[in-house]
């Protein structure tokens, strides 16, 4: 890893990273891909986020669904842990609560494959500031 030695360099890196990330969710972009984020803060892990994370990683690969499974911090729906967020290219992200491996299977089969919304969707109830 090389050190960033100026603000310009930092901005350049930011732009390329941002572009790459955004490209995942662009419909018809060659890089577009299903994104699954698993909330893995203490609460999430305590209620079983780790096996859910592993399950998505293994199963999506097994079922030949090109996807990126990543961990993230607290989504703040503590009451509904484990929570995950699924982004299908071209669609708004969807948050699911109380996800166990059975639920994960349902999400893969019904939402990711067929685009049907199963139960357990948590409506997003906040706005997030965009930093610039």
């Amino acid at each position: 890893m090389t050190k960033i030695t100026s603000l310009t360099e930092l901005k350049k890196l930011r732009d390329s990273l941002k572009e790459k990330m955004e490209s995942y969710s662009l419909l018809d972009h060659p890089d577009s891909i299903i994104q699954v984020k698993v909330a893995m803060a203490t609460c999430g892990q305590a209620s079983g986020a780790r096996p859910v994370f592993d399950y998505f990683k293994e199963e999506l690969e097994k079922r030949n669904i090109p996807a990126m499974v990543t961990q993230t911090g607290c989504m703040s729906y503590c009451y509904a842990e484990p929570t995950i967020e699924v982004t299908i290219p071209g669609k708004n992200p969807v948050v699911f609560g109380f996800v166990n491996t059975r639920k994960a299977d349902e999400i893969i089969e019904r939402y990711i494959r067929k685009g049907e919304l199963p139960d357990g969707v948590i409506p997003v109830n906040y706005e997030t500031v965009i930093s610039q």
Partner: peptide, 22 residues
């Protein structure tokens, strides 16, 4: 909490992409 539940906290690149260290 702008990045909580959004970025991978173990990847600095995620943070930079969200204008981190700017």
């Amino acid at each position: 909490l702008r990045n909580c539940g959004v970025i991978d906290p173990e990847r600095i690149e995620d943070y930079i992409a969200k204008d981190g260290y700017l």
